[in-house]
């Protein structure tokens, strides 16, 4: 069980290093954390994907 936890920690740790202070982006008077910037970017991607990806229709009915 302890070994499983260590494997999990190393896997997560290899993806994102959560040790240390947060990283921020400074652009003029705008300051935003990288984490928040990533979430906003994902929302923009999902928004355009939701518009562009065709919606599956049932049984050939609909438009």
């Amino acid at each position: 069980m302890q070994m499983l936890g260590a494997v999990k920690d190393s896997l997560v740790g290899s993806l994102i290093n959560l040790t240390g202070p947060g990283k921020y982006v400074h652009w003029g008077f705008i300051q935003i954390s990288v984490a928040n910037l990533v979430v906003i970017g994902l929302m923009v991607i999902v928004f355009f994907a939701a518009i562009l990806i065709p919606f599956r229709r049932h049984g050939g009915r609909g438009r």
Binding site: F47, A49, A50, I51, I53, F55, R57, G62, R63
Partner: peptide
Amino acid sequence: PAYVASWI
């Protein structure tokens, strides 16, 4: 309505 058939 048919226009609701979109992921948005």
